[in-house]
């Protein structure tokens, strides 16, 4: 880790209430640039809601979100995308009746300047298509360009999900359970993609994930959420050895998973 600790994204006292239910309760978290920051916690801990607040899909009841030092609270999702925030979804969220190439090409086009050229062919802007092909190569979907997205097997749909996000060259990637629904054999390939993204050197990833082994091995920092609140934050080692996490959350809920955590960190 570099000594310079530049904060890319910061949530301050975020609160989201649905009626009487407090889904995200006074959450403050700082994401450092060029790090992989994981958010873990049991189902219902408020991870996806937190993601919706960070990506602008929902507005917080209280609190603020800062990106590169600027207050982006209440900014519409499409504007955040133009600032360089990309998001993937836990439930596969693609364009089912469009080709794989078009799925990614649309995302590349979105951040360009040709969206309102109503009387020119989309094909006369080859830069977006080239970008899409390059991204499809990176996520391992080369050769599937002409296939309709809906007929892809689940694992490939998850890769496409990542590809759509990567096509706009975001600085900050919010990955909501990229391995959701994947079999264990499919996970390493996805892990490689994520590692390759980090190897670029200019990307920051916030990751929500349930697979503890994966989280422990690739994260720089981990935030543990429980019942809408931040329970603990630290390096994977700190989290695995954290007494509060162990007793209050990992020990109680996952049982021997706490042991597995320690084993993984070694």
């Amino acid at each position: 880790m570099t000594a310079e600790r530049e904060i890319l994204l910061e949530a301050k006292n975020l609160q989201k209430e649905f009626g009487g239910l407090v889904a995200v309760d006074d959450v403050s978290v700082a994401i450092y640039a060029r790090t992989l920051h994981s958010i873990i916690g049991p189902n219902g801990a408020g991870k996806t809601t937190l993601f919706n607040l960070l990506s602008g899909m929902m507005d917080p009841t209280r609190g603020q979100v800062f990106y590169q030092g600027k207050d982006i609270t209440g900014l519409a999702p499409h504007r955040r995308a133009h600032l360089g925030i990309g998001r993937s979804f836990q439930i596969t969220n693609i364009f089912p009746n469009l080709t794989v190439l078009e799925n990614v090409r649309l995302a590349a086009q979105a951040v360009g300047r040709d969206n309102f050229r109503m009387f020119q062919r989309a094909g006369s802007f080859p830069a977006y298509e080239e970008k899409a092909r390059e991204v499809l190569g990176r996520v391992g979907l080369q050769g599937r360009e002409g296939v309709l997205a809906q007929v892809l097997p689940h694992g490939d749909k998850r890769k496409l999900e990542l590809g759509i996000m990567l096509a706009s060259d975001p600085h900050l990637l919010l990955l909501d359970e990229p391995t959701a629904g994947m079999s264990s054999e499919q996970v390493p390939a996805l892990l490689d993609i994520i590692r390759a993204i980090m190897a670029d050197g200019d990307k920051t990833i916030v990751l929500v994930e349930h697979r503890m082994d994966m989280v422990m091995s690739i994260s720089d920092r981990i935030t543990v959420m429980h019942q809408g609140q931040v329970l603990a934050e630290g390096t994977p080692h700190e989290i695995a050895t954290n007494q509060t996490v162990q007793s209050a959350y990992l020990g109680a809920l996952y049982g021997d998973l706490a042991k597995e955590l320690e084993d993984n960190v070694g």
Partner: peptide, 20 residues
């Protein structure tokens, strides 16, 4: 056109259109 492609994307999946 590029605009028309977005129309189709809108038909397919509006939330993703916003997010990209």
């Amino acid at each position: 056109s590029p605009t028309g492609r977005v129309f189709v994307a809108l038909r397919e999946n509006e939330s993703r259109v916003r997010m990209i």
